[in-house]
Design a protein around this nucleic acid. Structure first.
Length: 212
DNA sequence: TGCCAGGCCCTCTTTAGGGCCTT
């Protein structure tokens, strides 16, 4: 099974295109269903942390001011992740900040992102919702720490990713789950995958994936 | 001081609107 780097950002807002900056990054490496290495750091991007965000994350302006420069942290975490394929919960969010902060540090991304939220929508459709915390509880996964801190969220997203890989192995009788397979499934029209799952006719899915 | 996004997906749809999810 691929080694996958699962990341999580804490930020000052929603969109880096409108001034939001990262305040914390964590990355964990998952191999054969186990977290084998971890990176975590606060970072100082010179951004102001709004009160709402400080209440949400527990990350204050004082903590950010005392943190290492954002570019230094991003180069460290990029070296930690290396060329491993990546994953995040609602990856479109973390991918935007990863690309934006990495560009400011003079680096660029080469690998794809898998998204545990898109996969969970397809593989755990009966969860009450598809927030990370709800899915952790729904799947009976361990709570790794305070929600909305980067390392805890990355660890829980990694646990969820492993659980989703197990679901795929069991449902489609796959020998292994690659990152490419995860990306393909998250990109399948939900109704198409749902038809396979509901019908119990998994041979078409297996043929499609094994044919590649 | 503290504004703000966007891709995915469902449906009372497709010539659109709105909820979800991330901070």
């Amino acid at each position: 099974m691929d080694t996958i780097a699962v990341i999580d950002f804490e930020t000052t807002g929603i969109s880096p295109e409108h001034g939001a900056r990262a305040t914390e990054i964590a990355a964990v490496l998952v191999r054969d269903g186990v977290v084998v290495d971890r990176y975590q750091s606060l970072m100082n991007a010179g951004a102001w942390v709004p009160p709402f965000i400080e209440a949400l994350t527990g990350i204050s302006n004082e903590m950010v001011r005392a943190a290492p420069p954002a570019a230094k942290v991003m180069r460290e975490v990029a070296d930690f992740v290396g060329g491993h394929p990546m994953a995040a919960h609602n990856a479109s969010f973390d991918r935007k900040f990863w690309d934006a902060e990495l560009a400011r540090a003079g680096r660029s991304r080469t690998q794809d992102f898998a998204c545990t939220m898109l996969l969970a929508r397809r593989l755990l459709p009966h969860a009450p919702n598809h927030k990370l915390g709800t899915l952790v509880e729904f799947a009976g996964l361990p709570v790794a720490g305070r929600y909305h801190r980067a390392l805890a969220d990355a660890e829980m997203a990694a646990s969820l990713l492993v659980r989703l890989e197990d679901e795929l192995v069991a449902r489609f009788r796959l020998g292994a789950v690659t990152h490419g397979l995860l990306c393909e499934i998250q990109g399948m029209p939900a109704r198409e995958l749902d038809r396979f799952i509901r019908s119990g006719t998994t041979s078409g899915v297996r043929a499609r994936f094994f044919a590649r």
